[in-house]
Design a protein around this nucleic acid. Structure first.
Length: 424
RNA sequence: GCGGCCGUAGUUCAGUUGGUAGAGCCCAGGAUUGUGAUUCCUGUUGUCGCGGGUUCGAGCCCCGUCGGCCGCCCCA
């Protein structure tokens, strides 16, 4: 008879000991993206299932077996978004943000849902932050997005992150390569595992990603995508590389880097950490020039990326990169014998005069000793003591808990305010 | 979707060949007449994840289930 209802598998609660990390990441992301003049866009968590099928691709794992799909009351199939680009593109088309050649630099943050087996760095509800740059065809746009993410890692203070890039080519050159690749794999069909057999005609590029040791040699000898790039794609890729070189962003060209979502073309990139085990990609993205048209909009080149906030939080926690400074700095210690009205009058006066001050007030006054103990455990810098003497005199007694030499002082209210202002 | 490990107080864990639970930390109170971080004393806490089975008897054995971790897979 267990009446407790537990949370769903792969979902989680963010508790106060961790929420401050999320808040700080969100704050830094917002500042960084704004400094590059990207504007926030917000779009629904639920969309028509069809949107994800046409955008992400029928043969992808995300669509085939990882979507939270269900029937709406009117009988339509709707789904929780498994990623952000689909909804963002839909919103751009529907609200005509790119009409008459307008460019857009957009970013978003929010929960995404995929029905997967939970693991470190992989949850069923997870938070992604993404940015999308619409209507610039040249690699300058790709470069800006990569530079902006590099700036973000710097601002967040994340170490051990590497950039990998590749070019998938235009959809025409990819089509040509695809046929060569299928032919090659068919020659070696006796070596293909079950997974590869299944993907041979739906998504042969993904076979290159396989870690099956039996297929390793065969894959290593497979024709390379880079040999089949057309001039336009080569030129585009070269442009990106020379900007990255100029800005001293180091990268590795990974010719086997192919993204799992169908809509990518030309540039693809990933930021990878070695600190998270097997879920090491913290940010991935690329160009998707044909997606807007595929969704029924006017042809609009675009490029974007998404990053997993949960994974970034994990790194910051595991490596203990940050310290919490969101805790109360000042603890209001109230004598049991002092009327709470007096204490509240003072605390409101303090909030009015020092709006930045993080004041903790104990609504259940116990002994002085116990309150001091609590203030200490909480990491408070100061204790304001409201005892019977202070209630009579109207003065403020302030004790500096972190420095015995300064110790305890008595102030008039105005003196107290200017003292605290100096401290902050 | 596949494979492996795991689930005992708030927490970290112990629990002998099956005989219905224990420690450290934390928390609360006190030694200290209005004052913390050291020390000492005292005290609270569990349907042993949940359900079923075997047994005279199950935290321990078996089955199921839920949840977590790790690998595959996938991806951010």
């Amino acid at each position: 008879m267990n009446k407790k209802i537990s949370r769903l598998r792969g979902m989680y609660d963010v508790l106060p000991d961790e929420s401050w990390i999320w808040q700080r990441i969100e704050h830094i992301v917002e500042e960084t993206f704004q400094s590059y003049s990207y504007q926030q866009i917000r779009f629904p968590i639920v969309e028509k299932t069809q949107l994800f099928h046409t955008t992400i691709g029928e043969a992808t794992d995300v669509v085939e077996k990882e979507m939270f799909s269900f029937q709406s009351r009117s009988g339509n199939s709707i789904s929780l978004r498994p990623e952000g680009t689909a909804g963002c593109v839909r919103a751009v088309i529907q609200n005509q943000l790119c009409n008459r050649g307008a460019t857009q630099k957009l970013w978003y943050i929010g929960p995404m849902f995929r029905y997967e087996r939970p693991q470190k760095g992989r949850n069923r509800q997870f938070t992604q932050i993404g940015a999308e740059y619409f209507n610039v065809e040249s690699a300058h746009a790709d470069a800006e997005l990569i530079l902006m993410t590099a700036r973000l890692w710097k601002n967040l203070g994340l170490p051990n992150i590497q950039l990998e890039i590749n070019s998938l080519g235009t959809s025409q050159s990819r089509k040509a390569y695809r046929e060569v690749l299928i032919a090659y794999f068919q020659q070696h069909s006796e070596l293909l595992d079950e997974d590869a057999q299944r993907r041979l005609l739906t998504n042969p590029l993904r076979i290159l990603d396989s870690k099956n040791p039996n297929m390793k040699e065969m894959i290593n000898n497979a024709p390379l995508l880079s040999d089949y790039l057309d001039d336009e794609s080569k030129e585009h890729f070269q442009q990106l590389k020379s900007i990255l070189d100029a800005c001293k962003i180091s990268y590795k060209i990974n010719p086997k880097l192919v993204r799992g979502l169908d809509y990518y073309s030309k540039t693809v990139f990933e930021w990878i950490t070695t600190d998270l085990g097997s879920q090491g990609t913290i940010c991935g993205g690329g160009r998707y020039d044909s997606l807007v048209e595929l969704q029924g909009g006017k042809p609009t080149p675009a490029v974007g990326f998404a990053m997993g906030v949960d994974r970034i939080v994990e790194i910051i926690k595991d490596l203990k990169l940050w310290q919490n400074n969101n805790e109360s700095k000042t603890y209001l210690i109230v004598d049991k014998e002092v009327a709470m009205e007096t204490a509240y009058k003072l605390s409101e006066k303090i909030h009015q005069a020092l709006p930045q001050l993080k004041l903790f007030m104990n609504q259940n006054p116990t002994s002085f000793k116990a309150q001091f103990k609590k203030a200490d455990k909480m990491g408070a810098q100061f204790a304001i003591i409201v005892g019977q003497e202070e209630a009579k005199s109207g003065k403020i007694t302030l004790k500096y808990l972190r420095n015995k030499e300064i110790g305890q002082q008595s102030f008039e209210f105005a003196e107290f305010v200017s003292f605290m202002n100096k401290q902050q």
